[in-house]
Amino acid sequence: MTRGSGEGTGIKHGDELVRFVNAVLGVGDGSLDAARSALVGAVSSPGMIDAAGVISAFTMMNRVADCTGLPLDPPMEMASRALRAEIGTDSYPSATNTPKGGWWSGIGARILGWLLPRLVRLMGNKKG
């Protein structure tokens, strides 16, 4: 996902979804019309519209966070620590807005680091 492909995510039609995001946001040289058609073929027109909505929502939410210096909510900071280390988001400039938690949150982070990937997999199997 952070490398620009939906392959290997285990999520159905992940590649078409990621190509659509890239095309809408002008990343890479893919045509938007082609990416949209491919996505409609994969997830239907309502699915494409839902994806467009999520792109629009996160265009907005990312700016709320980055332009006001929002730190991660403390539970999310703890829950995402292992995942962030794995996918490299701790190197983003805005990561400095979130202070690292103390030793107790390190224990919680380890537990959640084990639990969360299993929960996400469960979500993926539930539908799609």
């Binding site: 999520i11 992940g14 990621v18 239907s44 699915g47 519209i49 792109i55 539930k126 539908k127």
Partner: peptide
């Protein structure tokens, strides 16, 4: 939604 929550979060 027409997308699963996993698909929604992938886009996000």
């Amino acid at each position: 939604r027409a997308l699963s929550r996993a698909q929604i979060e992938l886009v996000a």
